[in-house]
Design a protein around this nucleic acid. Structure first.
Lengths: 250, 250
DNA sequence: CAGTCAAATCTTGCATACAAGATCATTGAC
DNA sequence: GTCAATGATCTTGTATGCAAGATTTGACTG
């Protein structure tokens, strides 16, 4: 029985063969992708702060292009969750509220736990090597006591777990979320001794992964991400109280 | 309070001037979201097929707008994973290859499993009621033996689980993936007896959720989604063989 | 002096213009 | 007859123009 006779398989294969569309960019010509990356870097690196307004004309002048590619870059950033576009009001660097932060970290924890479970079962020798290499890079940053250096190596360690699942769609999704939370993680790692604790947790996760114990790895990774979220929330709260005191004093 | 405002000559004059754009809607500020929704509906409902090209000019004429809002809608759809934009070549309804399909279903399975675990722990009376109501709607469609009616009720049942987690970020993510896979699920449910099996699985999932057994619900839901993916893959393979035969014959 | 309302100003949303890359068709060689 | 090269045509990517919503300003009212 023909269930879907008119499905266009010819086109299907032409598409598949001509383009590896899961390596990524949903981007186009020249300016727009460059702008998207530049703005994304600025946001993730903290040069543009959450809540800050992104003026189309200003950005167009800064990058020496017209408003059109700026708009398109902003729309992409909004779709990937780094920017919020309020109709007829402009674009703002996304500012997650306490509730959204908790929920985002919970989502991240669940996705990473799934990654750990799958990675433990499936990873090959290259994945193992990449994971250990990323872990050692983290170790170096910890030894140096340098949070600024730990931050990218930490991201790379997590990314290595995503990659080890062998599931590119899942890995892409995890990376997207990771980038979305990166501006907040950056704040979080400044909490005293958090870096050392984080690294210790990495060690447990890595051990479980190498032992092929998916459930243990999943549990450990979920807890690792959730504790980041919780630590971060208490930091936020503390900062907020501080701000309130200052506000009352002023 | 002024009950009847003075006649606004300035606004009247501007309104008059605005009529020199003939044949176009005079009200602005709603084109892009409207287009995005219309195109999304067309894709999810299967009126636009995976792999089909989306010509900017053609769409602009069809919707009686310029290319600009069409482009912006397409970019949004690309970011949410329903459309693929190939630089300087145009936009196409996303056509997932076999590998991407498997991986996407796996991701979906993991996310839904997480939803089930959380929902079992957290759902309140309203969530329970919504879940049961959605389940009964599914039952009606199954009794009627109507796959076309089953799709939306099935989607609603799953959506009710997402909502029951109380985590809006997670729920939004799950919904995004659900929509991305909807065009393919539609194909899948035409497999004979799949609808009945699906409903039976729903029943087990619902029972576990109502019993508060998160692990059981997670397991059942993961298997439920994965089996959809596997069924679908064998369908794809069958169609592919068929297409090969046709290709050789032609 | 605070609060309100209208008009000037600013910014976005959409339309249109145009250049450059991609596709297609025709021609010519082998 | 197949294939390659070349130009015509089509389509996208970016720039620019313009009108309406949003914001600010400033004058007026109570």
């Amino acid at each position: 029985m023909i269930l879907y006779a008119r499905f266009d398989w010819l086109h299907f294969y032409r598409l598949l063969n001509s383009y590896h569309h899961f390596g990524r960019p949903i981007v186009r010509g020249e300016a727009t992708p460059r702008l998207r990356e530049a703005l994304e870097d600025d946001i993730v690196a903290g040069r543009l702060r959450p809540g800050q307004r992104l003026d189309e004309v200003g950005l167009a002048e800064r990058f020496n292009v017209s408003r059109t590619p700026i708009r398109e870059a902003l729309i992409q950033l909004a779709s990937s969750g780094l920017v919020e576009i309020r109709p007829r009001r402009g674009a703002f660097v996304l500012l997650l509220g306490p509730r959204e932060l908790i929920e985002s970290f919970e989502l991240m924890a669940e996705i990473e736990a799934a990654c750990a479970r799958l990675a433990a079962r499936r990873m090959g020798d290259e994945d193992r090597a990449a994971l250990e290499s990323a872990h050692h890079a983290c170790e170096d940053a910890v030894r140096a006591g340098d949070p600024e250096a730990y931050y990218p190596t930490n991201a790379a360690f997590h990314a290595a777990i995503y990659a080890a699942t062998g599931n590119r769609v899942l890995a892409a999704e995890a990376l997207r979320l990771q980038r979305r939370l990166q501006p907040y993680r950056r704040l979080q790692l400044r909490v005293p001794r958090r870096m050392d604790a984080s690294f210790a947790e990495h060690e447990a996760i890595l051990a479980a992964l190498l032992a092929g114990d998916g459930e243990a790895a999943a549990q450990a990774l979920r807890a690792h991400v959730l504790v980041q979220g919780e630590r971060f929330m208490s930091l936020i709260t503390a900062l907020q109280d501080e701000a309130d005191v200052v506000a009352r004093a002023g």
